[in-house]
Each structure stands twice: as C-alpha cells, then as structure tokens.
C-alpha cells in the first residue's frame, strides 16, 4: 500500500505534494510520485526538471517519507495512466491538485481531475493551492 501523488510543476502540484507528504506520514506508507508528461514531443511543460525533482526528494527525506519516482512518459490520457498506476501499486489514496476552472470551462476542457474523481476505485484526496499563494491558473 502506498500513497500516490500525481505531480505537475505547478502550484497545484506543489500543494498536492505537500498534502501527499502529510498523508504518507499519517499512514506510515511510502509515497509514489508520478510525474508523467504526455509523450510524443521532446519537451513538455508537464515534465518536472531535475532541480524540482531533487527538491521534492529532499523534502520527502526531511519528512521521513520514503519516496519513489515514476517519471516516464505516457500516451493517451493522464487520468487513465494515473488510475492504472494506482491499480498496479495498490495505492491507498490518490492525491491530486485541483485547478480553478469556470463552470463553463469545465464543459469544454477535459479535466483530468474530474476523470480521476469519477473513475477511481480508491480514495482520492484533491487539494487546492494554499490561499495566499500567488496562484497561477494554468491555461
């Protein structure tokens, strides 16, 4: 059993990571960080760079949480990939960050978070960035 966090290099992703650390401490479980950019291009804004990964690793170490990384690219929908991974590692909870969307926006834009919330067969913890964070809303 492990805590799984879907990470993006965004304020939402950071918030999710913090929440996931707390969760992993609480459950005394290891933490699996999934940062899986969409494959097919050499560069993706979803991929976290080395410095970020190193920083996250350090934070996990200081919190006493055992961290595993899964950074390979995926094809298709990220939500499917996360859910499949959760199944493979028998995650006890999936932690994700939420983006602000207007109600109209939710109609047209596929929401990974929405898919996960609706399709997951295990608990999902969805967090928003801390208030006071100069929250950048992603396009």
């Amino acid at each position: 059993m492990t805590v799984l966090v879907g990470f993006l290099p965004t304020p939402q992703g950071e918030a999710a990571f913090d929440a996931a650390i707390t969760e992993a401490q609480r459950r005394a479980e290891p933490l699996l960080l999934v940062n899986s950019p969409r494959g097919g291009a050499p560069i993706s804004a979803e991929a976290a760079d080395e410095r970020t990964i190193a920083d996250l690793t350090e934070r996990a170490r200081r919190a006493g949480v055992q961290l595993h990384l899964h950074t390979s690219a995926h094809t298709g929908e990220l939500a499917d990939h996360l859910l499949r991974t959760a199944e493979e590692v028998t995650a006890s909870v999936i932690v994700i960050g939420l983006r602000k969307r207007s109600p109209v926006g939710k109609l047209f834009l596929g929401s990974t978070a929405q898919r996960i919330l609706l399709d997951a067969d295990r608990p999902v913890l969805a967090v928003k960035p801390h208030t006071g964070t100069p929250g950048a809303t992603l396009s």
């Binding site: 969409r38 993706s44 760079d49 690219a73």
Partner: peptide
C-alpha cells in the same frame, strides 16, 4: 510505431 522517448522539462 511507438517508441518511448524521454520527455524533458522546458529548458
């Protein structure tokens, strides 16, 4: 045909 390739963060 699918070839898994590394994806990098924007440089």
């Amino acid at each position: 045909e699918e070839r898994h390739r590394t994806v990098h963060a924007p440089a």
